[in-house]
């Protein structure tokens, strides 16, 4: 094995097929970048789900003096409140935690949320009313609470935060499916392009490979320069893709999303590095796979 000889063969091969090499690198970079973005979104969604599902509550709002609902006839009575509290206790272990929020607390929170806005000044504690904040062991089981309490006397409405979040997550899931779909299509294109490039390379070097066979070069030695060429293209492409997702992390997440949405966590650098390693591995494996399969057909030894 002569490393220098192999290196010069690889270099010549890459230069001879320069346009194809560039096409290869760009395709690999774009498909891997999309794939990486898909992975990051996926990670982001699961991280957000973990974060938010821990916090989501079902809120049982009690009637206030202003309530218009049929189940309300003035503010909820002490007996009604007591009944609700007992019933919630009876629903353990599904119900993990119950917290009673008084009008004053609701008012304080409201003031905080809308500080500086004219609505904050016009509201009074009585307008906001009292509520039970129920934390469920399994947030997906909220329907049980809804069916048990909605429409009962003294209860204005039952709100489930998860339903709101679900819409957001469905949107993110959809985005993720689309980006993954595009990425997979691009990866297929990449494999085909690698195959085609190798075919061209094998054809343009058929004299050399023919002589190599005749003088008894091993199959490995004949195929190695081709294999290295596609792997080098894959490594360069993957490096560009890693650059793209690092840029995404810095420009989109760190500079824009994180300052704008401080209440939720975003993917960290460790996720970015894991995804980078995955991209590199996938790029190399796909390129090597495509090269080997093609060379078996077009480079008979």
């Amino acid at each position: 094995m002569r490393a220098q000889f192999v290196a010069s063969e690889v270099w010549q091969g890459l230069r001879r097929n320069l346009t194809m090499t560039i096409a290869l690198i760009i395709t690999i970079a774009v498909s891997l970048a999309l794939f990486g973005a898909g992975l990051l979104v996926r990670q982001q969604v699961s991280q957000m789900k973990g974060f938010w599902f821990d916090k989501v509550e079902v809120s049982i709002f009690l009637c206030t003096k202003n309530s218009q609902e049929a189940s309300c006839s003035g503010p909820a009575s002490e007996a009604e409140k007591q009944q609700i509290a007992t019933d919630l206790e009876g629903m353990r272990p599904l119900v993990q935690d119950v917290y009673f929020e008084t009008s004053q607390e609701a008012f304080n929170r409201f003031q905080e949320q809308f500080a500086g806005s004219p609505i904050a000044d016009s509201a009074t504690p009585e307008d906001l009313g009292e509520s039970y904040r129920v934390k469920l062991a399994d947030p997906d089981q909220y329907a049980v609470i809804t069916s048990a309490f909605a429409g009962r006397p003294g209860i204005e409405r039952v709100d489930d935060q998860k339903q709101v979040l679900d819409k957001l997550f469905r949107l993110l899931d959809g985005l993720q499916v689309i980006s993954m779909g595009i990425a997979i299509a691009m990866l297929i294109v990449t494999v085909l392009l690698v195959g085609n490039t190798m075919r061209l390379a094998a054809y343009s070097r058929r004299r050399e490979t023919g002589i190599m066979r005749l003088v008894g070069a091993s199959k490995f030695y004949i195929q190695l320069p081709f294999l290295l060429e596609s792997v080098i293209a894959a490594v360069i492409g993957a490096a560009l893709a890693v650059g793209a997702i690092v840029a995404m992390k810095i420009l989109l997440v760190d500079r824009f999303l994180e300052p704008s949405f401080q209440f939720t966590p975003f993917v960290g650098w460790e996720t970015v590095w894991v995804v980078s390693a995955i991209l590199l591995a996938i790029g190399i494996l796909l390129a090597a796979f495509a090269a080997v399969v093609t060379l078996r057909r077009y480079l008979k030894v």
């Binding site: 002569r2 004299r207 005749l214 003088v215 070069a217 091993s218 030695y221």
Partner: peptide, 28 residues
Amino acid sequence: IGTVFQDFRLLPNKTVFENVAFALEVIG
């Protein structure tokens, strides 16, 4: 087995020395 053909089968972009050396390089 050494092989020789009617059409020589030399590599046009390599010199005489390199053509001969090629046969040894590729078998390491």
